[in-house]
Design a protein around this nucleic acid. Sequence first.
DNA 1: TCGCGGGCTTGATCCACGTCAACCATGCAA
DNA 2: TTGCATGGTTGACGTGGATCAAGCCCGCGA
Lengths: 246, 246
Amino acid sequence: MMATAPITAAGLKKACSQCNLLELCLPFGMDDSDIHRLDELVGARRKIKRQQPLYRTGDPFEAIYAIRIGSFKTDVLLEDGREQVTGFQMTGEILGLDGISTELHSCNAIALEDSEVCVIPYAKLEELARVVEGLQHQFHKVMSREIVRDHGVMMLLGSMRAEERLAAFLLNMSQRFTARGFSSAEFHLRMTREEIGSYLGLKLETVSRAFSRFQDEGFVAVQQKHIRILDSNGLKKLIQHQPGMR
Amino acid sequence: MMATAPITAAGLKKACSQCNLLELCLPFGMDDSDIHRLDELVGARRKIKRQQPLYRTGDPFEAIYAIRIGSFKTDVLLEDGREQVTGFQMTGEILGLDGISTELHSCNAIALEDSEVCVIPYAKLEELARVVEGLQHQFHKVMSREIVRDHGVMMLLGSMRAEERLAAFLLNMSQRFTARGFSSAEFHLRMTREEIGSYLGLKLETVSRAFSRFQDEGFVAVQQKHIRILDSNGLKKLIQHQPGMR
DNA sequence: TCGCGGGCTTGATCCACGTCAACCATGCAA
DNA sequence: TTGCATGGTTGACGTGGATCAAGCCCGCGA
């Protein structure tokens, strides 16, 4: 937990209004005058080193976090040690919403690489959301989007076979990289096969085999964590109307 | 969609303030004076017949719904017809949060029995939440709770074996019946084996077999949809530290 | 330069759950 | 009362993905 590195308030003025992640983050859809009011909201930044937690299950909930740099995974642990990765988060995405319900965080958020987040004190956010209508609405949208995303993961875990899951995962990653101005066809995965597997409800060997199979089929070129998508339509076709399955 | 049966405004006065679901529903945690202000919020009630949709994927989002009577399932359909049940909802629980993000509903909400909901126009809710602090906070909690619940389902689908899933499901149902003042040991499931299976990522035969096995072990007495839990500790033990598994 | 370790790949085998199919229970409509 | 439809149970069998195990690749520190 010592990866914290708060920055003095001075250097933070105009945090949101001049952040280039604006269109991906909380302020999306708000007008200029409102966005300037957000600057008072973002209290500090915090740097998290690779493999370090931003927060852990049971930590008191005080703030939500917007990722400025880097990426994270969230996971839930069972008493017997089983891990379920519940999501991977990239720049502009919001972490910590799980904590609102009980005032305690209910999952772990771990940095997949050296990262930096904007700390958004929750009390302040609620306060400002009462005044700035656009912020309130956008915040609700962010939470709702998370719920919809979770339904998608349930669909994945409950009704799709291994290769469909991985194809859906790759297409999702690709689409999110695109939204951030990166190539949709070539990217670097920050997580291990085991973490992908946990997210997709598969063992790492199965993930690895599916990657190899995609490579054989000419859908992708895989080199460790470096992925090149050669035939995204092929992947898309894989997801729909697979012949017989659960 | 013709199952609608709005009621005249007159009969609805004091909708929330004298509703016995208060402590399960949105108003939870608000003080008396605030709760009376909620009465203006709940616009109408709507009756939904068994098997009928409250809303469907793609329907424009206008309101969220609090279940007064009955129960629902929500599901997502894939193009090829595969269904994933994403949740079962009981009295006092909120439906429709999925629609906020895109202004369109992203799942189907189907009544499992003849049911009745309170219609809470979303625009009004946002408005009132800006004034009534307790409502804003409680609404955020409801959304956050949904996110946490979804993480639990992911854990279920991604890391548990068939019998663990069903045990977790039964214990969850039992706990929710208890919270509503019903017996924790004896209850009636409103959904079919197939729907349970879809929710748990299993086929109905597997669900059926797991029920039979639980009965053989003396954990429950099963008679079609009527369930009696005889040994809830047995079920709990089943969930944790099962020997070797995925 | 080498050795080491974490992450990845691949093969052989196993088993939990899916699939297919027959049959039974319940409830409703004629 | 019978007939039919929907939902549930149970058995036999097949298979997708887990498990176990060996070996590879690559980055890093000595």
